[in-house]
Simulated assay, not measured.
Amino acid sequence: MQIFLAILLLAAMIATVVALVRGIVVFLKTTEEELKNGTGPTQSALKSNKMMQFRIFFQALAVLIVVIILFAAGRT
């Protein structure tokens, strides 16, 4: 069970980093013209926001897994 949780934690941490990098790349691709346009959020801004939401989700998942691991270690 501990090994499974450790693998799950590693996967959640990798997913967090991937979502962070993808969100930053999309954010950096936002052109100055899109920022000055002022007609509301663009597709790239919405995609960047979605990637950051994924990052937060994966981070929360990783923290939850750490809590489960610590709880399980304390019970043995």
Score class of each variant (00 low, 15 high):
residue 2 Q to Y: 05
residue 2 Q to V: 12
residue 2 Q to I: 10
residue 3 I to Y: 06
residue 3 I to V: 13
residue 3 I to T: 13
residue 4 F to K: 11
residue 5 L to G: 00
residue 5 L to N: 06
residue 5 L to K: 01
residue 6 A to C: 04
residue 6 A to Q: 15
residue 8 L to R: 02
residue 8 L to M: 12
residue 9 L to V: 10
residue 9 L to Y: 11
residue 9 L to I: 10
residue 10 L to W: 14
residue 11 A to I: 03
residue 12 A to H: 01
residue 13 M to S: 15
residue 15 A to K: 00
residue 16 T to P: 04
residue 16 T to C: 11
residue 16 T to K: 02
residue 18 V to W: 04
residue 18 V to D: 06
residue 19 A to S: 15
residue 19 A to N: 03
residue 20 L to A: 14
residue 21 V to H: 10
residue 22 R to Q: 14
residue 22 R to E: 13
residue 22 R to V: 15
residue 22 R to S: 14
residue 25 V to Y: 14
residue 25 V to D: 14
residue 26 V to S: 08
residue 26 V to D: 00
residue 26 V to I: 15
residue 27 F to R: 14
residue 27 F to K: 12
residue 28 L to C: 15
residue 28 L to R: 15
residue 29 K to R: 15
residue 29 K to D: 14
residue 29 K to W: 03
residue 30 T to Y: 03
residue 31 T to A: 01
residue 32 E to L: 14
residue 34 E to A: 08
residue 36 K to T: 13
residue 36 K to D: 09
residue 37 N to T: 11
residue 37 N to W: 05
residue 37 N to K: 08
residue 38 G to L: 00
residue 40 G to A: 10
residue 41 P to A: 13
residue 41 P to V: 02
residue 41 P to G: 04
residue 41 P to F: 01
residue 41 P to E: 12
residue 42 T to Y: 06
residue 42 T to Q: 03
residue 42 T to L: 07
residue 44 S to E: 06
residue 45 A to E: 15
residue 45 A to W: 05
residue 46 L to G: 06
residue 46 L to N: 12
residue 48 S to F: 04
residue 48 S to D: 07
residue 50 K to W: 04
residue 50 K to G: 05
residue 51 M to L: 11
residue 51 M to P: 04
residue 52 M to I: 01
residue 52 M to P: 02
residue 52 M to L: 11
residue 53 Q to M: 10
residue 53 Q to C: 03
residue 54 F to Y: 12
residue 55 R to L: 02
residue 55 R to I: 03
residue 55 R to C: 01
residue 55 R to S: 09
residue 56 I to T: 09
residue 57 F to G: 09
residue 57 F to L: 05
residue 57 F to I: 11
residue 57 F to Y: 08
residue 57 F to H: 02
residue 57 F to V: 11
residue 58 F to W: 02
residue 59 Q to H: 09
residue 59 Q to W: 02
residue 60 A to S: 15
residue 60 A to C: 07
residue 60 A to N: 00
residue 61 L to S: 04
residue 61 L to M: 08
residue 61 L to E: 08
residue 62 A to S: 14
residue 63 V to I: 15
residue 63 V to L: 14
residue 64 L to H: 07
residue 65 I to R: 06
residue 65 I to V: 14
residue 65 I to M: 00
residue 66 V to Y: 05
residue 66 V to D: 01
residue 67 V to D: 08
residue 67 V to N: 06
residue 67 V to C: 13
residue 67 V to H: 10
residue 67 V to P: 03
residue 68 I to Q: 08
residue 69 I to D: 05
residue 70 L to P: 06
residue 71 F to C: 06
residue 71 F to D: 10
residue 72 A to S: 11
residue 72 A to T: 11
residue 72 A to L: 13
residue 72 A to I: 04
residue 73 A to Y: 01
residue 73 A to W: 10
residue 74 G to N: 09
residue 74 G to E: 02
residue 74 G to M: 07
residue 75 R to C: 00
residue 75 R to G: 12
residue 75 R to A: 12
residue 76 T to E: 09
